[in-house]
Write a protein that binds this DNA or RNA. Sequence first.
DNA 1: CATGAATGAGTTTTCATTCAT
DNA 2: TATGAATGAAAACTCATTCAT
Lengths: 196, 196, 196, 196
Amino acid sequence: MRRADIENVRKKALTDAAIQAVGAQGSMDVTMADIAARAGVSAALAHHYFGSKQDLMTASVRALLADLRTDAIAALGNARSPRGRLSAIIQVSFSAKQFSSETVAAWLAFYVEAQRNPGLSRLLGIYGRRLHSNLVSGLRPMVGEWEAARIAEGTAAMIDGLYIRKALGSAGRRADPVQLVEDHIETQIASVRRFA
Amino acid sequence: MRRADIENVRKKALTDAAIQAVGAQGSMDVTMADIAARAGVSAALAHHYFGSKQDLMTASVRALLADLRTDAIAALGNARSPRGRLSAIIQVSFSAKQFSSETVAAWLAFYVEAQRNPGLSRLLGIYGRRLHSNLVSGLRPMVGEWEAARIAEGTAAMIDGLYIRKALGSAGRRADPVQLVEDHIETQIASVRRFA
Amino acid sequence: MRRADIENVRKKALTDAAIQAVGAQGSMDVTMADIAARAGVSAALAHHYFGSKQDLMTASVRALLADLRTDAIAALGNARSPRGRLSAIIQVSFSAKQFSSETVAAWLAFYVEAQRNPGLSRLLGIYGRRLHSNLVSGLRPMVGEWEAARIAEGTAAMIDGLYIRKALGSAGRRADPVQLVEDHIETQIASVRRFA
Amino acid sequence: MRRADIENVRKKALTDAAIQAVGAQGSMDVTMADIAARAGVSAALAHHYFGSKQDLMTASVRALLADLRTDAIAALGNARSPRGRLSAIIQVSFSAKQFSSETVAAWLAFYVEAQRNPGLSRLLGIYGRRLHSNLVSGLRPMVGEWEAARIAEGTAAMIDGLYIRKALGSAGRRADPVQLVEDHIETQIASVRRFA
DNA sequence: CATGAATGAGTTTTCATTCAT
DNA sequence: TATGAATGAAAACTCATTCAT
């Protein structure tokens, strides 16, 4: 294998391991040694490739984001209408992969860390704006720019809230997250149209 | 000051300092020395009174919870109707005190920690059930038990989501959280009644 | 109770507690708080009466020594012959009180500490010389000064060895300590006489 | 030096340093920093190799035990008779290396610690049984099983006693330990034979 | 006389990071 | 490329000791 290839393989293994470790632990308070061990390499190598723990974490979030983006693009590509695009976004957000306990826990941990880490904050801001813009682009044709923005904000909040509840494994969750969000959107759209 | 009171004063100062420190830091990764300094005492004294960092944190969460509860009871006492109870709950959740950046950040940090700490998890579970039950008790008279539970779940998720967004200081937030939640509830209730 | 009496009662309670604590722990690595609690008082009071942990320990050894001395004097008073004096010394050394697990463990702990503590060393030296002199005074009439000193040294070593073995609760101890020491002395005396 | 050897070299340096430190201090109450400094490394490295202070101490006792065992095996190999084996054991016990102040102080410290540490206790139990069995194997041909066990016990006690007296540097020691023990054994054997 | 309040100094342990091989 | 060696810095926790009441 060429040197550049090895580097990519190692980097991928390390970011995967980092996400896994953070997800398992529920916070970014994991050791480089733990992450490296999950990737089957030494902690020193992780430093060699990423420079610091911080940089490895940032790269990991970027990977998470890229993954989500890929899924979203694929789902949106199949949508045949603005309303379909909304459903596609929701489906992806709660898909088995994105809504797995580990991934959700990792998201939450990164969110928390972002409060102190501008780089991370900026990165997660991208995700937030992308979600918002996707929601708005589905809603706009149906309710107009202004209402679309308002509904998107409530919807995004609900999605985030469902994520945090998933992460905490709150007992008593009965309703399907997709149903909950779809219902919110549907009801909001209907309400706007009734009074428009 | 009476000798017997000192303990309570110190304990209060320390839990306040802990919440403040956790809020400022955005995570429970704060040192006893930092907390103790904020309370104006030595780290050794914090151990003297609480035994361990863990116990101090638990006591702090308990204090946060008790504070929220007091506010909620006061607000509910003034409500004159089921619908008024719902608004009261929402008002309290987003009141200046409960929705301050620091308090919100502390809540989030405790939530994250709860993933690994059963004691904390149990404590926060109390909050979750109390919120749910308060919401249901306001909704039930209007939409019945079944729909009340469903709406309460979406509402609680939205509240949690708005909290996490507040903690992250996500740019671009424009809508008022209270408006968002009130609107969600109002629309949901109306929708249920229309098709009932 | 007069003030001086209270002081003596407290001091006695504290040295007793110290011996008990050290015996239970098997080393002088016990806390003032532990000792004070056993004596039913505060750690501050222990300092008030003894000035320092070191001083409390020294006083405790002194008490142990005084106790042993009282027992020894009583036993020697009943002895009717030099040989009887030897047996009396041995009896006392292995009496239920002096050879109890706790007392033995306390002796050992103090011995160990004496390596670094000249004051303690001096105190324990008194015990060593007293034992030696008592043994010699019993042996001298039977084997003369020179042999008495030699036999006393071996005997004292054996007694110390039996103490340390008791402290460690070495499995497999079968023989009675008194028998072992009596036999050693008897055989040594006989041997000297045969070849004298 | 080969990379693979470094670990063993460091471990050896650390256990040596630990024995030295414990011997100098007369108790196990020495800091990892002190031990590490004596070995010329950082305290962190000591943890790296041994995991905990406890484990380092256990390894050190094991080293002490192994060393004694090697010496004993060598000495026993040169013995030409049961009686010679007894003398060999005694010689080793009081050899310059094994009976040095530091080594003796270390033994005593470990013995004391063993009261609270089952792992250490088990380890030291091995030494006790080995000494006993070596003594019995030398005595048995001369006095039979039963008497051999009895004499071995007294002898072992005397050896232990001479160790503790050495550790304490008791003033007034005049007799040679080897002489004392040899004499005890000789006299006991003679006594048994006379009355057998 | 007696105690709880309070702390400074110290100890083990953890961990990101650097470096030589 | 890859790793084990090595460490400094930090953090929780302990405890003898002092002091005000």
